[in-house]
Design a protein around this nucleic acid. Sequence first.
DNA 1: TAGTGGTCTAGACCACGAC
DNA 2: TCGTGGTCTAGACCACTAC
Lengths: 237, 237
Amino acid sequence: MQKLFNAPLYAQIREEIFAALRSGRWSANDPLPSETKLASEFSVSQGTIRKAIDDLVAQNILYRHQGRGTFIRRHDEQQSLFRFFNLSRTDGTKPVPESLNIHCKTRKGLKHECLALQVPTGDRLIEVLRLRRLDGQPVILETILVSQQRFPELNKRDLPNTLYELYSDDYNVHITRAEEQIQATLPDATVISHLNLEPTIPLLEIRRIAFDLHDQPVELRISQCVTGSFVYTCSLN
Amino acid sequence: MQKLFNAPLYAQIREEIFAALRSGRWSANDPLPSETKLASEFSVSQGTIRKAIDDLVAQNILYRHQGRGTFIRRHDEQQSLFRFFNLSRTDGTKPVPESLNIHCKTRKGLKHECLALQVPTGDRLIEVLRLRRLDGQPVILETILVSQQRFPELNKRDLPNTLYELYSDDYNVHITRAEEQIQATLPDATVISHLNLEPTIPLLEIRRIAFDLHDQPVELRISQCVTGSFVYTCSLN
DNA sequence: TAGTGGTCTAGACCACGAC
DNA sequence: TCGTGGTCTAGACCACTAC
């Protein structure tokens, strides 16, 4: 946690609340204490608490629901299929991605994989290979890698379409943000066979690292995508 | 402008301030009236004005500088090279893009181009073709398309590296946001010759539409990029 | 020193949701 | 009905910038 000696009150309180979230002080399903309660706990006014929470809401760590309370932001089935999913049709609308698990196994991590996940080189990883269809067409082959130590027995579970939901429900790991790197590639043999491709068709390769509440890298996901009916979209401000 | 009858005060005021910005009521170089002046003009408290401006700052339309004032956000040489530029080295650091103009001419727009720019089909467009180098390597061939009517004489000017600066200085067109669509392609003859490529090297094709203060599409920019030393990066929250 | 945005308070009232 | 977040006020003081 960052020390904020001369920072404004609301920033200090924001960091204290954030630290409490990371420590698991409040359950992920219950609301946080109300703004007035937090205000008296920290001996500040409601406005100052509001500003602290505003920041955490802006970071997508919390969300508010008027009349109900303030909650930890989670990945649930409804929204998670679209949040963190940047492929859309060329007209901008978003398809519902379906997924089909091909295999799930454990193996030693390669150097670049362990580096990305910040685990010791050669640690055992769990690898999930899955095929994704958009509008019925098989367009993505996805390789998902996580530390076996961090997600014990993951390979023995039923894996849902939205893994991030499973991470938070069963492992108390909350994905808050991710970074994606995109390159153009040509398909290798595995991709060619699973996506039924000509070998000269260029692909988008999306390499995503997902981070948890502690800002630790938790999952490496490499997606090979056919773009034609679908495009990767990104907004700039 | 959106009608906001039952919306909170600060939202109504935000829209009024935004409308004033679009109408050019305040110069792009001078600060807006101070928060206290706006507060008395709209007969509300400073806090309400602050909240209205907060929203416009969050949208990157305005920025504040403590002690100096509140200003319209512009694209200037220093930051514009990096803002709206998502290519980075594989380690995440950003190179400084250089650009070399190849040609600048006018021609009739193709159907999809005019559609993207929301001008009548067949309108005359200005096309700028430029080569971009990153770390000395030629990696991007960029085609820029704007309406000739909207940017008269643009083709007779010296075109700087950062066009958005020119748009706001000389045409009073302020780019506030953009949408990018990314696909994987193979290079055509033009790209092969300018980037000195093998024809089987896959490319990233970035199709960007940039919008002004009125949220009208103003520029279509298609970049063909070699990814190898460089990747397209995107953050998800 | 005067003016700007930035922080903070204490209190009032409103809108929504659960009971 | 009560508790939650959401809005709004009036006023105080702080931190930075220009002059």
